[in-house]
Design a protein around this nucleic acid. Structure first.
Length: 478
RNA sequence: CGAGGCGUGGCACAGCUUGGUAGUGCACUGCGUUCGGGACGCAGGGGUCGCAAGUUCAAAUCUUGUCGCCUCGACCA
C-alpha cells in the first residue's frame, strides 16, 4: 500500500531543499541536460515529448478557434525594435545582439527575438489594408532568447520554447474579446490537461507587459507556496498599430488603426507540472501530457509465457493509451523506481501468478496504490484509473492552494504572513503603485493579479489604509 | 549584477592542508547465477585532474589569471 517512504535516494527531499529537489528531478527524470552556455539546455527526448504533447493539445485548440500558424524571422533590426518606446525599454536589458556577419561588422546590429511583436507589426503593416483583411489570427511556435542573469531549467532559461499568438482586430471590443477568450483557453488547458488549478486575473500597471494596454494572467501555486505566472494574454489596444503605422480602410472609407493582442505559454509549463505534482519519489505527470501513460513491467521475465503475455497486453492497449513495455534486463524493482521517477501515471505488472489467475497488478503513481484487476476488463480499468489520477492531481493541488491562501487587512498582518507562511495572500488595494512598491520592499512579495472573482476582504487598502478599489492576490513569485 | 559554493573517467565524490607512479562508488563491456520494490559473483575497458601562465628536479595539490556551472537575492514567461 501507499506510504510516504522515500524510495529514491538520489532525489533530495523537497522538505529539505526545494530548489535542489527540483533540479534533481529535472536531471534524474531525464528531462534536460545542461548546454555549454549558461542558461541554454538540451531538452532530452523525454522532456521534449512532454512539450510535444502540450503543443499538440494547444495547437488543436488554436486551430479550432480559427488561428493559423506562421513563422517569423529570428533576428530583429535594432531600428525595428526601437519603434515602440515602452516595449524597447522593457526588453532592452535582456536582449542578445548579433553584431558580426562572418568577419564583417554589421552596419546595424540585430537583436535575437525576445518576443516577436515588432516583427508581427512590420508584417501586419504590409498585409492589412481593408476591414476585409481583419481579423488576422496568427500564432507561431518558436524559440526566443532573453539574457537572464540567473537561470533555472524550464523556469528561467535564456532560450525557451513557446507559442506566441498575435492577432489584429477591427475594433477594441473584438480585441478585448480575443484577449479574454485566449486566457480562458489557457486556464482550461492548465486545469483539464495539466491538472493545475489557476487564478485568472488582470496584472496591475506595474506588472503588465511592456507596451500592453492590459495584461491578463493565469497564476498557479507551486508546492512551496510560490506563484508561477503560467500564461499571459495581452491587449495592446492600437498603440503598436500607431507606432508601426498599421492602417486599414473601414466600410465608411476612413482610415483606422486596428487593435492588437498577443498571448503565450512556454516550456515553463513543464516546470509548473514538476513543482505542482512532483513528490520525493520524482516526477508525477498528468495523464494528458505524459509521454508514457502506462508502463508494462514483466515480472520473472525468463519464465515461460511471461513475455508473450506482456506483448499480448501491449498490443491490446497500445492503440488506446501511450504504452511502453520494458523488457530490458533490469530487475523489476529497479524498473518500478525508474518509472516512478519519470512520473508515469500507471504501472502494469504482469508475472506468472497473474497469468495463472487471468489478472494483472495496476499501480497508480500519484498515490502508489496497488490494485489487482481482471484482464477481462483491462481497458476500462486503465481508462478509469487515468481519469481518477487526473481528478486527484487537480484536487490535491487545489486543496493545497486553498490551505495556503490567507487574507490580510493590515500592513502588520500581511508582513507577518509573508514572513512566516508561504502561499498566496488576498488583500485589498487602493490602486496606487506606491503600495505595491512598499510591500515589495518590506515583504519581498509582489502583486500576482486582480482576480476576475474578487472578494470584499475589507474596505481599505492593506498597505496605506485609503479606500480600496480592488482585491489583489499577493505572493512570492518565480 | 551582488553574496556564497563548486570544477578530478559518463555521473557522484575522495585525494589538495604537508608537492613524489590518479583512487572509490555507480554506470559501461563479457560470462554465470538471479528476477513480485533500485540483485549478486568473477573478469575487464575508460581520466594529460576546466583552461592558461608561473614557482619547482617534480604540480590534481602551491601562486596568479581566466572560463564555466550551481544556489540565494534584484529582473523576467
Amino acid at each position: 500500500m501507499a506510504d510516504n517512504k522515500k524510495l529514491v535516494s538520489e532525489i533530495t527531499s523537497m522538505d529539505v531543499d526545494f530548489a535542489k529537489w527540483y533540479t534533481d528531478i529535472v536531471k534524474k527524470a531525464d528531462l534536460i541536460a545542461y548546454g555549454s552556455v549558461k542558461g541554454f539546455m538540451v531538452i532530452r527526448p523525454y522532456g521534449y515529448a512532454i512539450w510535444e504533447n502540450i503543443q499538440k493539445i494547444l495547437d488543436d485548440s488554436f486551430k479550432k478557434t480559427g488561428h493559423e500558424n506562421i513563422y517569423m524571422p529570428l533576428l530583429i533590426p535594432e531600428s525595428l525594435l526601437n519603434k515602440e518606446k515602452e516595449h524597447v525599454e522593457g526588453f532592452a536589458p535582456e536582449v542578445a545582439w548579433v553584431t558580426f556577419g562572418g568577419n564583417e561588422k554589421l552596419s546595424e546590429r540585430l537583436c535575437v527575438r525576445p518576443t516577436s511583436e515588432t516583427l508581427f507589426c512590420e508584417h501586419y503593416a504590409d498585409i492589412i489594408h481593408s476591414y476585409r483583411d481583419l481579423p488576422k489570427l496568427y500564432n507561431q511556435w518558436c524559440n526566443v532568447v532573453r539574457w537572464e542573469k540567473t537561470t533555472r531549467p524550464f523556469l528561467r532559461s535564456r532560450e525557451f520554447l513557446w507559442q506566441e499568438g498575435h492577432t489584429m482586430h477591427a475594433t477594441a471590443e473584438d480585441a478585448q474579446f480575443e484577449t479574454l477568450r485566449m486566457l480562458d483557453l489557457y486556464a482550461d488547458f492548465a486545469e483539464k490537461s495539466l491538472c493545475i488549478p489557476v487564478i485568472k486575473g488582470q496584472k496591475t500597471e506595474k506588472e503588465k507587459f511592456a507596451g500592453a494596454k492590459a495584461t491578463y494572467t493565469i497564476e498557479a501555486m507551486m508546492h512551496d507556496g510560490k506563484a508561477l505566472q503560467s500564461g499571459t494574454s495581452h491587449n495592446f489596444g492600437d498603440g503598436f498599430a500607431k507606432a508601426f503605422n498599421i492602417l486599414y480602410t473601414d466600410k465608411d472609407n476612413s482610415q483606422k488603426n486596428p487593435h492588437q493582442t498577443s498571448w503565450g505559454v512556454t516550456t515553463r509549463l513543464i516546470g509548473a507540472i514538476i513543482m505542482t505534482h512532483g513528490d520525493d519519489n520524482g516526477l508525477v505527470l498528468p495523464p494528458a501530457v505524459a509521454p508514457i501513460q502506462v508502463v508494462i513491467i514483466p515480472v520473472a521475465m525468463h519464465k515461460d509465457g511471461v513475455l508473450d503475455k506482456a506483448h499480448e497486453l501491449y498490443s491490446r492497449i497500445s492503440d488506446k493509451f501511450k504504452v511502453k513495455l520494458d523488457e530490458s534486463e533490469e530487475s523489476p524493482g529497479w524498473k518500478y523506481a525508474e518509472y516512478e521517477m519519470k512520473g508515469v501515471p500507471v504501472r502494469l505488472e504482469i508475472g506468472p501468478r497473474d497469468i495463472e489467475n487471468n489478472q494483472c497488478v495496476l499501480v497508480r503513481r500519484d498515490t502508489r496504490e496497488k490494485t489487482i484487476v481482471s484482464l477481462d476488463n483491462l481497458e476500462e480499468e486503465v481508462a478509469n484509473l487515468l481519469s481518477n489520477i487526473s481528478d486527484n492531481l487537480y484536487k490535491k493541488a487545489l486543496n493545497r492552494r486553498e490551505e495556503m491562501t490567507y487574507t490580510a487587512t493590515t500592513l502588520e498582518e500581511i508582513t507577518e504572513i509573508a514572513a512566516t507562511k508561504p502561499g498566496f495572500i488576498k488583500a485589498m488595494w487602493c490602486g496606487d503603485v506606491a503600495c505595491e512598491n512598499k510591500l515589495k520592499e518590506v515583504s519581498e512579495i509582489s502583486s500576482r493579479c486582480i482576480p476576475f472573482e474578487e472578494q470584499q476582504i475589507s474596505s481599505t487598502c492593506v498597505c496605506c489604509g485609503k479606500p480600496a478599489k480592488h482585491m489583489l492576490y499577493w505572493g512570492k513569485a518565480y
